[in-house]
Simulated scan of single mutants.
Amino acid sequence: MFAAALALSPLTLNTAIAQNETATEERTDAQAIQAIHKEWAELIAEKDSAAIGTLYAENAVLMAPGEPVVEGAKAIEARWARQLTLDGFDFSLTPQQLVVSSSGDLAHDRGSYDFAATLPQGAITDTGKYVLVWQKIDGDWKVIADIFNSNPADAAE
Protein backbone atom coordinates (compact mmCIF):
# COMPACT_ATOMS: atom_id res chain seq x y z
CA MET A 1 0.00 0.00 0.00
CA PHE A 2 2.79 2.37 1.00
CA ALA A 3 4.72 1.54 -2.18
CA ALA A 4 1.64 2.29 -4.30
CA ALA A 5 1.13 5.63 -2.55
CA LEU A 6 4.79 6.45 -2.95
CA ALA A 7 4.65 5.56 -6.64
CA LEU A 8 1.64 7.86 -7.16
CA SER A 9 3.04 10.82 -5.22
CA PRO A 10 5.13 12.20 -8.14
CA LEU A 11 1.98 12.13 -10.28
CA THR A 12 0.03 13.97 -7.59
CA LEU A 13 2.82 16.50 -7.16
CA ASN A 14 3.11 17.05 -10.93
CA THR A 15 -0.66 17.51 -11.19
CA ALA A 16 -0.63 20.04 -8.34
CA ILE A 17 2.27 21.94 -9.94
CA ALA A 18 0.48 21.97 -13.33
CA GLN A 19 -2.73 23.26 -11.69
CA ASN A 20 -0.77 26.00 -9.90
CA GLU A 21 0.98 26.97 -13.15
CA THR A 22 -2.38 27.09 -14.95
CA ALA A 23 -3.90 29.26 -12.20
CA THR A 24 -0.88 31.59 -12.36
CA GLU A 25 -1.12 31.86 -16.16
CA GLU A 26 -4.88 32.59 -15.93
CA ARG A 27 -4.16 35.34 -13.38
CA THR A 28 -1.43 36.78 -15.59
CA ASP A 29 -3.74 36.69 -18.63
CA ALA A 30 -6.56 38.32 -16.66
CA GLN A 31 -4.16 41.04 -15.51
CA ALA A 32 -3.08 41.61 -19.13
CA ILE A 33 -6.69 42.06 -20.22
CA GLN A 34 -7.36 44.38 -17.27
CA ALA A 35 -4.36 46.45 -18.37
CA ILE A 36 -5.81 46.66 -21.87
CA HIS A 37 -9.05 48.00 -20.36
CA LYS A 38 -7.05 50.79 -18.71
CA GLU A 39 -5.21 51.51 -21.96
CA TRP A 40 -8.54 51.55 -23.82
CA ALA A 41 -9.93 54.19 -21.44
CA GLU A 42 -6.83 56.32 -22.04
CA LEU A 43 -7.15 55.92 -25.82
CA ILE A 44 -10.80 56.99 -25.66
CA ALA A 45 -9.80 60.08 -23.66
CA GLU A 46 -7.11 60.81 -26.28
CA LYS A 47 -9.63 60.12 -29.09
CA ASP A 48 -7.12 57.75 -30.72
CA SER A 49 -9.28 55.57 -32.97
CA ALA A 50 -6.25 54.11 -34.79
CA ALA A 51 -4.84 52.72 -31.53
CA ILE A 52 -8.28 51.51 -30.45
CA GLY A 53 -8.51 49.63 -33.75
CA THR A 54 -5.35 47.69 -32.85
CA LEU A 55 -7.12 46.26 -29.79
CA TYR A 56 -9.30 44.22 -32.17
CA ALA A 57 -8.29 41.15 -34.17
CA GLU A 58 -8.23 41.54 -37.94
CA ASN A 59 -11.40 39.42 -38.26
CA ALA A 60 -13.21 40.90 -35.23
CA VAL A 61 -16.89 41.79 -35.24
CA LEU A 62 -18.71 44.58 -33.43
CA MET A 63 -22.43 44.09 -32.93
CA ALA A 64 -24.23 47.25 -31.83
CA PRO A 65 -27.99 47.44 -31.38
CA GLY A 66 -29.90 48.70 -34.40
CA GLU A 67 -26.87 48.57 -36.68
CA PRO A 68 -25.45 46.08 -39.17
CA VAL A 69 -22.52 43.99 -37.93
CA VAL A 70 -19.21 45.84 -38.32
CA GLU A 71 -16.60 43.36 -39.55
CA GLY A 72 -12.84 43.71 -39.38
CA ALA A 73 -10.47 45.82 -37.30
CA LYS A 74 -10.27 48.61 -39.91
CA ALA A 75 -14.06 48.95 -40.13
CA ILE A 76 -14.32 48.91 -36.33
CA GLU A 77 -11.60 51.57 -36.15
CA ALA A 78 -13.62 53.72 -38.59
CA ARG A 79 -16.74 53.33 -36.43
CA TRP A 80 -14.77 54.41 -33.36
CA ALA A 81 -13.39 57.39 -35.32
CA ARG A 82 -16.95 58.54 -36.10
CA GLN A 83 -18.03 58.14 -32.47
CA LEU A 84 -15.02 59.95 -31.07
CA THR A 85 -15.86 63.05 -33.13
CA LEU A 86 -19.32 63.42 -31.58
CA ASP A 87 -19.73 66.52 -29.44
CA GLY A 88 -19.67 65.75 -25.74
CA PHE A 89 -18.57 62.16 -26.39
CA ASP A 90 -17.99 60.25 -23.18
CA PHE A 91 -17.73 56.48 -22.91
CA SER A 92 -16.59 54.10 -20.22
CA LEU A 93 -16.60 50.36 -19.57
CA THR A 94 -16.96 48.85 -16.11
CA PRO A 95 -15.81 45.22 -16.19
CA GLN A 96 -17.73 42.93 -13.83
CA GLN A 97 -16.54 39.45 -14.76
CA LEU A 98 -13.51 38.19 -16.62
CA VAL A 99 -13.02 34.49 -17.31
CA VAL A 100 -9.90 33.14 -19.01
CA SER A 101 -10.21 29.66 -20.49
CA SER A 102 -8.03 26.93 -19.05
CA SER A 103 -6.44 26.63 -22.51
CA GLY A 104 -5.22 30.21 -22.06
CA ASP A 105 -6.12 31.38 -25.55
CA LEU A 106 -9.71 32.62 -25.08
CA ALA A 107 -11.41 34.81 -22.52
CA HIS A 108 -14.73 36.51 -22.10
CA ASP A 109 -15.45 39.62 -20.19
CA ARG A 110 -18.76 41.19 -19.36
CA GLY A 111 -19.78 44.36 -17.65
CA SER A 112 -21.59 47.62 -18.08
CA TYR A 113 -21.00 50.77 -20.09
CA ASP A 114 -21.98 54.41 -19.94
CA PHE A 115 -22.21 56.56 -23.06
CA ALA A 116 -23.03 60.22 -23.64
CA ALA A 117 -22.86 62.45 -26.71
CA THR A 118 -24.63 65.28 -28.42
CA LEU A 119 -26.24 64.38 -31.73
CA PRO A 120 -27.98 66.78 -34.12
CA GLN A 121 -31.26 65.79 -32.40
CA GLY A 122 -29.83 66.67 -28.98
CA ALA A 123 -27.93 65.19 -26.07
CA ILE A 124 -28.22 61.46 -25.41
CA THR A 125 -27.07 59.18 -22.64
CA ASP A 126 -27.11 55.42 -22.61
CA THR A 127 -26.26 52.82 -20.02
CA GLY A 128 -26.10 49.16 -20.87
CA LYS A 129 -24.20 45.92 -20.77
CA TYR A 130 -21.49 44.43 -22.94
CA VAL A 131 -19.68 41.18 -23.67
CA LEU A 132 -16.19 41.08 -25.14
CA VAL A 133 -14.64 37.85 -26.37
CA TRP A 134 -10.85 37.91 -26.35
CA GLN A 135 -8.38 35.67 -28.16
CA LYS A 136 -4.66 35.46 -27.59
CA ILE A 137 -3.09 35.91 -31.01
CA ASP A 138 0.70 35.68 -31.31
CA GLY A 139 0.97 36.32 -27.57
CA ASP A 140 -1.28 39.40 -27.56
CA TRP A 141 -4.90 39.58 -26.36
CA LYS A 142 -7.26 40.92 -29.04
CA VAL A 143 -11.01 41.43 -29.05
CA ILE A 144 -12.67 39.07 -31.54
CA ALA A 145 -16.29 39.88 -30.67
CA ASP A 146 -17.77 43.03 -29.14
CA ILE A 147 -21.51 43.11 -28.47
CA PHE A 148 -23.54 45.48 -26.35
CA ASN A 149 -27.08 46.65 -25.75
CA SER A 150 -28.91 49.25 -23.72
CA ASN A 151 -30.57 48.65 -20.42
CA PRO A 152 -34.34 49.06 -20.55
CA ALA A 153 -35.65 52.53 -19.81
CA ASP A 154 -37.13 52.99 -16.37
CA ALA A 155 -40.86 52.23 -16.42
CA ALA A 156 -43.12 55.22 -16.05
CA GLU A 157 -44.60 55.40 -12.58
Rank of each mutant, 00 (worst) to 15 (best):
T85L: 09
T12Y: 06
V143C: 15
P152W: 01
T125E: 11
A116D: 02
K74D: 11
N20E: 14
N151Y: 04
A3S: 02
A57S: 14
A155E: 11
I52K: 02
G66F: 03
V69S: 02
Q135M: 12
K129Q: 10
F91P: 03
P68L: 05
I124E: 11
L43C: 01
K38N: 12
D138F: 01
D105A: 01
I147A: 15
I76K: 08
I33G: 13
T94A: 14
E39S: 06
A116P: 05
S9W: 06
D29E: 10
Q19C: 07
F148E: 06
G139F: 03
D140Q: 15
I36W: 00
W40G: 01
A51C: 02
L62Y: 11
A75E: 15
A117W: 10
E25I: 02
A81N: 09
A73Q: 05
Q83A: 14
Y113A: 09
R82S: 12
D48Q: 00
S112T: 15
T127I: 08
G72T: 09
H37Q: 11
D114L: 07
I76Y: 01
A117T: 07
E157C: 06
P65A: 13
N14W: 04
A7K: 04
A35Q: 14
G66T: 10
P10E: 05
Q121F: 05
L6V: 11
K136Q: 07
K129P: 01
G66A: 13
A153K: 15
Y113T: 10
A16T: 13
V69P: 00
P65C: 04
A155Q: 11
K74G: 03
V70T: 15
N20L: 14
S112M: 10
D90Q: 15
Q96G: 13
I144M: 03
A30C: 03
T12G: 14
D29H: 13
